[in-house]
Amino acid sequence: MASPVTPGAEDRLRRWLIRRAGELRGRPLAIDERIPVGTLGSLVLERAAMAARGLARFPTRSPRPFVGRGVRLRAKHRLLFGRGVTFGHGSLVDATSVHGVTLGNGVTVGRNTRIECTGSVATLGAGLAVGDGTGLGTDSLYGCAGGITIGRDTIVGNYVSFHSEDHVFASRELPIRDQGVTHQGIEVGDGCWIGSRVTVLDGARIGDGCVIAAGAVVVAGDYPPYGVYGGVPARLLRERSR
């Protein structure tokens, strides 16, 4: 019968796994000590598999991303990324656009998230640019026809949607689908937190350090820095304290 792992050996293994996980991710990780060693080992193996997929998808490029299972990447020549970028399982990135998709160092595209840069073949879309350290949550949609810019170190929650395109409906005589679209673009600053199930519409400009409450609808207009906004449509609830 095999002898159990001693506490000292388990501690050394834990430290090694945490160090290896940080190396694979490209930055140090804070990991709760209560997480079992076996779980850490599984995470490291999963990360290594994602690194291998990145090598297979981008054999001649460096740095290479971490690529999850079932990831679809279209117009890869228009896709630029820094170190430690992750494409979560089942995500889609279609970079077909004027400016393509640029993802800074450490950007994470969450599971099942879709980035679509062109909404119609009639008009080539603008694209997406995301700053270092930003996380794009799971099960989200980024419609980048009019262009989306998101700053550094911003958190985007799950089930969030961005729509940088708006339909014209001025005429009652013509079907809305025949009246064309407008593109103002969307801007999100540095260090923001966009809550779960938020909808951000074309023309919204969210300043640095803003918090958008879960379920809010952010319409066209300016949202000054360091405000907490919520509601439908989103309005200022309070300013963040210093």
Rank of each mutant, 00 (worst) to 15 (best):
V232T: 15
Y229K: 06
I194V: 07
C210F: 02
R235N: 13
V218K: 01
Y226A: 14
G231T: 06
V188F: 10
G209R: 11
Y229A: 02
V218F: 07
V232I: 15
V181F: 13
G231I: 05
G185W: 06
V218D: 12
A220K: 12
T182M: 05
Y223A: 03
A216R: 05
D222E: 15
Y229Q: 00
A234R: 12
L201F: 04
D208H: 14
G195I: 01
P233F: 12
I194H: 11
S196T: 15
P224T: 08
Q184Y: 07
V211H: 09
I206D: 08
T199M: 08
P225T: 12
R197A: 11
G209Q: 03
A216C: 11
G215Y: 12
G207F: 03
I212H: 04
G231H: 12
A204T: 07
D190Q: 03
V228D: 00
W193Q: 05
D222L: 10
G231C: 06
G207K: 05
G180S: 02
P224N: 04
G221P: 11
G209W: 00
G195N: 04
G185C: 05
T182S: 12
V217I: 14
V181H: 14
C192S: 05
G231L: 10
V188L: 13
I206F: 09
A204G: 04
A234S: 12
G215E: 09
G209C: 00
G203E: 03
G191R: 15
I194G: 07
T182P: 05
G227Q: 01
G191T: 09
P224M: 05
V188M: 13
G189S: 11
I186E: 09
I176D: 13
Y229C: 04
G189C: 10
G215L: 10
S196Q: 15
D178V: 14
G195F: 02
D202V: 02
Y226S: 11
Y226T: 10
G227Y: 00
A204N: 09
T199F: 10
V200W: 01
Y226L: 06
